[in-house]
Design a protein around this nucleic acid. Structure first.
Lengths: 195, 195
DNA sequence: CAAATAACGTAGTGAACGCTACATAAGTGC
DNA sequence: GCACTTATGTAGCGTTCACTACGTTATTTG
């Protein structure tokens, strides 16, 4: 065991609590006081375990991304791209309105005040949104190569379209849209599908 | 003329400057110092002319909404609903990426940290987004009544879909998407149209 | 020219922010 | 047991926040 006084809280659990606060209030909207209270620790413990507020956010974001990316990959593994895209949007309609968690997508909601002072936070979020769009694009490229999509289909544009709809759904969810309403949006969004 | 020392700045122009700051930085991200600097006045002048930060934001938002609603109504007056919807999204692709103004839509971008402390700001923005969605819905209801849209079309869902795409486009624009890229999204989004 | 009125610039206010110094407590290694 | 290491709680650091008290200046009214 490591030398010195042992940590009296579970780091993973504390990070989950911090994630929830950032998700609900955004980066700048979440104060250290909000965070320490939710995490059940005092400021020095937070700083010694996670560095500072920005580094804590980055770790919480990575944790969120890990969970989110895992589910995305499972859905993208569907036999057809059409099913994969519908799966992504249906899952978004469900998870964005899940009452047991903050509404909306962290990637969109956390863009808090986002003054120049938080520019690197915006960059982190943008990078995560791009990761997601890239994976969708790759799946669509494969579908075109396999003949599911016509040769003239544009995987990059289609991926951007799906991503755009999902991001819009996050704004809608934050504004109070229900899962049923978002599912109707998904119906219409998929009506545009080339196949 | 009113008695007393006359105001040494143009209130409308100062409000425009404040709007630009809020648009770029969000409500909480815009400090009074940022605002007074951009407006070319000192804090006491701001408070005496506009009340406080929240009231200033409300007035700036109303000004933005006025301009935005006027253009929306012009576009919705197009002969067909199909043309109106395409017009809305094409105009969004253009204005969201207009380099002479902050990127994105104020209704989406200004949702600053949005802690409970700024709840009424969120409500203001949500209300404006709903105004827009309602007008689109009304136009689509008319189109259905006039026979342009089939009887089984759902104007409320279609309006929500168009709004969702536009809001997603705002997130995309804030992340650096170009007008051309957004126009490709519009192409795909309109492929879903019932007619 | 007063008196009244209202905006002005200076220079702050108290509160909340992110963050940390410091003494103490709780473990390990010898 | 004793030195060493690391986490903890208290208490407070300097900075920035939204906002304002106050004396001054510019204008209208009579």
């Amino acid at each position: 065991m490591a030398v010195g006084r042992p940590r009296s809280f579970c780091k993973d659990q504390a990070l989950d609590r911090a994630l929830e606060v950032f998700w609900r209030k955004g980066f700048e909207g979440a104060s250290i006081c909000d965070l320490t209270e939710a995490m059940g620790i005092n400021p020095p413990s937070l700083y010694s375990a996670f560095g500072n507020k920005e580094q804590l956010f980055r770790q919480a974001l990575d944790r969120y991304a890990e969970v989110y990316a895992k589910r995305r990959r499972e859905i993208l593994a569907a036999p057809s791209a059409r099913e994969a895209m519908e799966g992504l949007l249906r899952d978004a309609a469900r998870s964005l309105t899940d009452k047991s968690r903050p509404v909306g997508c962290l990637y969109v909601q956390a863009i808090a005040g986002a003054s120049e002072h938080a520019a690197c936070i915006r960059e982190m979020l943008k990078s995560k949104r791009e990761d997601s769009e890239r994976e969708i694009r790759d799946r669509l490229r494969r579908a075109r190569a396999e003949g599911e999509l016509p040769k003239e289909a544009d995987p990059a544009a289609l991926a951007r379209y799906i991503t755009t709809v999902a991001q819009g759904m996050s704004v809608q969810a934050a504004g109070g849209a229900t899962r049923k309403e978002l599912d109707r949006v998904v119906d219409l969004a998929l009506g545009a599908w080339p196949a």
